Amino acid sequence: MDLDAVRTFVAAADAGRFQDAAATLSITQQAVSKRIATLESRLGVLLFTRAPRGARLTIDGQAFLPHARALLRAEERALASVRPGRRALRVDVIGRRLAPAVLLRGFHRANPDTELDVVTLFDADAAVAALRAGTIDASFRAVTMAARKLPDGIEAARVYDEPVQLLTGPGHELAAARSVTPAELAGHRIWMPGIVDGTEWAVYYDALAARFGLTIEATGPDFGTEPLVDTIADSAALATFVGEDTRLVWPADQDLRRIPLRDPTPVYPHSLLWRGDNAHPSLTALRAHLAATRTERREAETWMPAWAR
Rank of each mutant, 00 (worst) to 15 (best):
Y204E: 00
F107Y: 02
N111D: 06
D234R: 15
G44I: 09
A110P: 02
A175R: 03
A15Q: 05
E155K: 11
A31S: 14
S235L: 09
T246H: 11
G54K: 01
T302L: 12
L261C: 08
T135V: 15
F223D: 06
L238T: 07
R211Y: 05
A22D: 03
G224N: 07
T215F: 12
R53I: 03
F48C: 01
T219E: 15
L238F: 12
E301Y: 06
E162Y: 03
V164L: 13
S235E: 09
D255E: 15
A279R: 12
A80Q: 14
L283H: 09
P112L: 07
L46G: 11
D234T: 11
G44S: 12
L103A: 05
E296N: 10
R96F: 13
T240K: 04
T231A: 15
A175I: 06
V229M: 14
T302D: 07
A186Q: 13
P251S: 11
A233P: 01
H172S: 09
R297G: 03
Y204L: 05
P163Q: 13
D206E: 15
E115K: 14
M304W: 07
F241Y: 02
F140Y: 11
T28V: 12
L116K: 10
A74Q: 13
R90E: 00
R141L: 05
E200A: 10
V143I: 13
E296F: 08
L256P: 02
D113T: 10
D161V: 04
R257E: 05
D253Q: 15
R148L: 13
D4H: 12
L167V: 04
W201N: 08
L261Y: 01
L248W: 01
A142T: 03
V180T: 00
A183I: 09
Q19A: 14
V102F: 04
F122Q: 11
W191C: 06
F241D: 00
G44V: 10
L286K: 03
V229N: 02
H67L: 11
L131N: 02
A127W: 07
P269Q: 05
P251R: 10
L283N: 08
W307I: 11
T231Y: 07
R69H: 10
Q254K: 15
I190Q: 02
R97S: 11
E173M: 09
V82P: 03
F140I: 04
N278G: 03
V164Y: 00
A288H: 07
D277R: 05
Q165W: 08
A5G: 05
R262C: 08
V32D: 01
Q30N: 14
A236V: 08
L79F: 10
H188E: 12
F9C: 05
R262A: 14
S282K: 02
R132I: 10
D222H: 11
S81E: 13
G213I: 09
V119E: 01
S81M: 05
I232P: 00
A285G: 08
A23D: 15
D277V: 01
H108S: 12
V267K: 06
G194D: 09
A177Q: 06
T49M: 07
R7D: 04
L46T: 15
G134T: 12
R178N: 10
G187Y: 11
R247P: 00
P227I: 11
A186S: 15
L150D: 02
A21L: 02
R17Q: 07
D2W: 04
M304E: 04
A31Y: 05
R211L: 06
L238V: 09
